[in-house]
């Protein structure tokens, strides 16, 4: 067991922070019915990283996350603009378009680059196992910045999420929307290299969905979801260690199993009046 913690302490710490952050965003995203927004933003980050690779930027250069964040800000601005169309075009459709186009553009760019296919695969799967304390620090710093913004506008963001689908569109509203996407994007940029696109999507959606199974309040969903997120990712790390399986995929599968196991329990509890 002591060996487990020697190797897995840093990955576990990053899963802990990311569970809390992503579940928070996840509860918002579920309310807004824009489930695939993070896949879209993560794919834009991947497109940014791939652009860096094609431009011969060394992978460890700080320019790579900057490029990724630049692409995400572009996406954030785009999403907050297209909400004006919401009466005719659902936001989810726009998000889907951005996702497939960004994914295909990354494939096009990578097709001309050596080992581009492996690069794309790495971005999807991530490498939780290689998380270092430096990565944890970076995630914690970005997380604190994001938390500060959301602490200040906690009510404002919550009201916006509650009324996302009905509220008429105003300029301050659009700015808040942009800040929401930009802060989510920042968390994605600092975590996509270690966690990967698949695990990020899982951390965003599954804990928030599980929270929604058992609670109607915003904070309740967040707390239940974050707790479940932490427990499940540590279970995934432990199983990956015990049975020597690729870590990211093991964690994602654990989340799937936990979700399936909770479904009947929540039905039983909700059936009682």
């Amino acid at each position: 067991m002591s060996e487990f913690w020697t190797f897995m302490a840093a990955p576990a710490a990053s899963c802990l922070i990311l569970s809390v952050l992503y579940t928070y965003f996840g509860v918002h995203v579920l309310k807004r019915e824009i489930i695939f927004v993070d896949l879209s933003l993560a794919q834009l980050a991947a497109l940014g990283a791939t652009t860096g690779m094609v431009l011969d930027v060394p992978p460890e250069s700080p320019l790579v996350p900057l490029l990724a964040f630049g692409f995400i800000l572009g996406g954030a601005a785009f999403f907050s603009t297209t909400r004006a169309l919401a009466s005719r075009v659902p936001q989810e459709a726009v998000i889907g378009i951005v996702y497939v186009v960004a994914a295909s553009a990354a494939l096009l760019l990578a097709s001309r680059a050596p080992h581009g296919a492996e690069h794309i695969k790495n971005l999807l799967n991530g490498s939780v196992l290689w998380t270092t304390w430096q990565d944890v620090l970076r995630i914690a710093l970005a997380g604190s910045a994001v938390a500060a913004v959301h602490w200040k506008y906690f009510r404002r963001f919550r009201e916006q999420s509650e009324n996302y689908l009905v509220q008429p569109f105003s300029t301050p509203d659009r700015i808040m929307d942009f800040i929401f996407f930009a802060t989510l994007g920042l968390v994605i940029v600092v975590s996509v290299k270690t966690a990967g696109v698949f695990l990020i999507f899982t951390l965003l959606i599954v804990p928030a969905v599980c929270g929604a199974l058992f609670s109607n309040s915003f904070t309740g969903r967040w707390l239940i979801g974050a707790g479940l997120g932490i427990a499940t990712s540590i279970l995934g790390l432990a199983l990956s260690y015990k049975f020597d399986l690729p870590t990211g995929a093991t964690i994602v599968t654990c989340f799937g199993i936990v979700f399936l196991a909770l479904l009947p329990i929540s039905r039983a509890t909700n059936a009682r009046p």
């Binding site: 060996e3 020697t6 190797f7 897995m8 080992h115 492996e118 799967n125 490498s127 196992l129 290689w130 990956s240 260690y241 020597d244 399986l245 690729p246 870590t247």
Partner: peptide, 15 residues
């Protein structure tokens, strides 16, 4: 050998 999927046992071996 250019690419391998990270697995915990590799770390144990090297450790």
């Amino acid at each position: 050998a250019h690419f391998i999927e990270a697995k915990p046992s590799y770390m144990l071996k090297v450790n």
